[in-house]
């Protein structure tokens, strides 16, 4: 299996083989972060720009550390420090950045398709770090990596994804990864937050959360996407927490060895209770750790090999 894509724009564009290649490549990078000297020369002389138009803690830090551990030079640009506040278009910003010859640009943007637009006009590799409610491919890859690591397999699993499905790029990307495997994908949340057409991409809808988590091997919780208007889709956050907050009683309905996932940031007491978030089934911090290895793998596959 060879990787021949210039960009990572979404999971939708990836084959099952390409997804597995990323996971297998990430396996080999995981060990680096456990060494005393956490650095390899793989990306020496390469430049990676992170261009973030939306807030981020995990994704940007993860990309930056991933790049640095592979000896790349990294530059971070966020919308408050960029020329977008002076009225420069995204296209012009990107072309100007490209004039400084970066090898990869990681972009996060509130508008779906923004990374695709850049990929069309830039020679650099473009990595989608989350585009609106569309995709967040590296998150889904690290989620799948974590599932495979904890469960030892992907096929045959029942995965419940619960929350604001309509506005979640994490949900979409996870649907696209999981549907390449023999998995049962259930989504749950208030009907206002689940587009009915989602069944067309191989996802089952179960509005009742108690039923959705029944017998699940993996439960993935999502937050309400307030920045995309999620609040107006429900009567109140309090009611949401009652109906779709993950508590211990739900865990008892799932498989005995269920794992609980969350892409972060968590809203404790809303979609997840403290006892679950910090409990024995939670793999939430493992996800963050694995994110590093997966992003190293992506950078390696896109810009790390001699062409």
């Amino acid at each position: 299996m060879n990787w021949d894509k210039k960009d990572l724009l979404g999971i939708k564009e990836l084959s099952r083989e390409e997804i597995l290649l990323v996971l297998d490549t990430a396996e080999s990078f995981k060990d680096i972060s456990k060494r005393e000297i956490k650095k390899v020369p793989t990306l020496r002389g390469k430049t990676v720009i992170t261009l973030f138009y939306e807030p981020s803690t995990r994704t940007r830090t993860s990309f930056e550390i991933a790049a640095k551990r592979m000896s790349a030079d990294t530059i971070n640009i966020s919308s408050s420090t960029s020329s977008s506040v002076k009225g420069e278009t995204l296209k012009d910003t990107a072309r100007n950045l490209e004039s400084m010859r970066p090898d990869a640009i990681v972009i996060r943007h509130s508008m779906p398709g923004a990374p695709h637009m850049l990929a069309r006009i830039l020679d650099s590799s473009v990595i989608n770090g989350g585009d609106g409610a569309h995709e967040h491919p590296t998150q889904a890859l690290l989620d799948l990596f974590t599932i495979r690591e904890k469960k030892g397999r992907i096929d045959g699993l029942k995965v419940a994804i619960i929350g604001d499905i309509a506005h979640s790029r994490v949900a979409r990307s996870n649907f696209f990864t999981l549907s390449h495997f023999d998995t049962e994908i259930i989504c749950s949340g208030p009907p206002t937050m689940i587009p009915p057409d989602i069944e067309g991409i191989g996802v089952k809808i179960e509005y009742n959360m108690n039923k959705a988590v029944k017998g699940a091997d993996v439960v993935m919780m999502l937050r309400i996407q307030k920045e995309r208007g999620g609040i107006s889709f429900i009567p109140s956050v309090k009611e949401y927490a009652t109906l779709y907050g993950l508590r211990k009683e739900h865990i008892e309905k799932a498989k005995k060895d269920v794992i609980i996932m969350h892409p972060g940031p968590m809203n404790r007491g809303i979609e997840i209770s403290d006892e679950v978030a910090d409990g024995p089934y939670s793999v939430i911090l493992d996800q963050v750790e694995n994110g590093l290895a997966v992003r190293m793998a992506i950078l390696y596959l896109l810009i790390g090999r001699e062409s």
């Binding site: 939708k12 779906p112 585009d131 609106g132 569309h134 979409r172 057409d197 067309g200 991409i201």
Partner: peptide, 11 residues
């Protein structure tokens, strides 16, 4: 709004 918007994530 439909199958395509579910895939492309556009409002």
């Amino acid at each position: 709004e439909g199958a395509a918007s579910v895939k492309n994530g556009l409002d």
